[in-house]
């Protein structure tokens, strides 16, 4: 069959398209989402490269202090007084230096992986808790424990968590705990699972009565298998969308914490604390403020746009159009 014939068969029978291909076709049409995806792919590359470069290549060491070269604007050359071993690549500060003469480009490179890691781990924790609690409430909701049902118990607990002003709670806990990057990830994760729990429960409630689940139950499959192999994959698409958007929120929360002085502590650089440090030099060294600011904007925007594109592309109602 020639390629043209294959194409015409596909045109006549759009239903024969595999779900993955269909998803991709819808996703590709959304130009903003595609732009977001490209930025994210770039960011992932930068974060991985940055992790390797800042750890192993001395020219990219973000902790090198060069007091002769402090607050140099972007693209300025290195002064002669800096030892050859401490010079950045090409002897040029591509993004300038900060108040201690540290290379902003190197700090941004290191920060990319730390910021992403915070986002991913925090969201991983939130989604795990959300799936566990939402799944329990959705599947075993009717089971009674004494006077209350499992569903009441879990959902009321979710309501309790929704009553807290989240940022205030995060700030309280982060301020009381010893400052560490892991505490920040855990605290952000533990305080942001409520949305996921709510819609996993809703999905599970509607999936439970569907034929394939009833059939699996009739076949006598163990319950964990029904939950994890049959129901969870079907509840995956809203989870994926919510996870993408939550990563964006976690990165923003980290930068807000950094602004208040409770973010990731030195020597780790994150985009949030580079920005927070940069605000003190907004007039003398504006690049210290604008470079991380716009970098965060671009990345968070990319996560949000890609998440929205996912939502559209995974929504079966919109696919046929």
């Amino acid at each position: 069959m020639s390629a043209q014939a294959v194409a015409s068969v596909h045109a006549q029978r759009p239903l024969a398209e595999s779900p993955g291909r269909q998803f991709w076709r819808v996703f590709k049409r959304d130009r903003l989402a595609m732009a977001g995806l490209v930025v994210l792919a770039l960011l992932l590359g930068i974060a991985l490269a940055g992790k390797a470069l800042t750890a192993w290549v001395p020219a990219f060491d973000p902790a090198t202090v060069r007091l002769v070269d402090k607050l140099r604007p972007p693209l300025s050359p290195v002064s002669n007084l800096v030892a050859p071993a401490e010079r950045p690549l090409g002897s040029i500060y591509v993004l300038g230096t900060d108040d201690l003469g540290r290379d902003v480009a190197a700090r941004m490179l290191q920060g990319a992986s730390v910021s992403l890691l915070i986002g991913f781990v925090a969201v991983g924790i939130a989604m795990t808790i959300g799936v566990l609690l939402g799944g329990l409430a959705g599947y075993y909701g009717g089971v009674r424990l004494g006077v209350v049902t499992v569903d009441t118990l879990i959902m009321r607990f979710t309501d309790v968590m929704l009553c807290f002003p989240t940022f205030f709670l995060i700030l309280t806990v982060v301020a009381l705990l010893p400052p560490s990057i892991y505490n920040i990830m855990i605290v952000i994760g533990v305080t942001s699972w409520m949305g996921a729990a709510r819609f996993v429960r809703a999905e599970f409630l509607s999936l439970r009565s569907q034929d394939f689940v009833v059939a699996a139950q009739a076949l006598g499959l163990p319950e964990w298998r029904i939950i994890f192999r049959h129901m969870l994959p079907n509840a995956m698409s809203p989870l994926l969308v919510s996870a993408t958007i939550s990563v964006a929120d976690a990165i923003l929360t980290e930068s807000a914490l950094s602004f208040l002085g409770f973010g990731v502590q030195p020597p780790f650089a994150t985009w949030g604390n580079v920005l927070a440090d940069g605000k003190d030099y907004i007039f003398d060294a504006p690049w210290l403020f604008f470079i991380p600011g716009f970098a965060i904007l671009a990345v968070v925007l990319a996560f949000n746009l890609a998440g929205e594109g996912l939502r559209e592309a995974l929504n079966p109602k919109l696919r046929s159009r």
């Binding site: 903003l32 923003l252 965060i296 904007l297």
Partner: peptide, 17 residues
């Protein structure tokens, strides 16, 4: 749509400054 996403994506204190 784009502006709405940009607004929720920008760190609040950055925009405020």
């Amino acid at each position: 749509t784009f502006v709405a996403y940009a607004l929720i994506s920008i760190p609040g204190f950055f925009l405020s400054y």
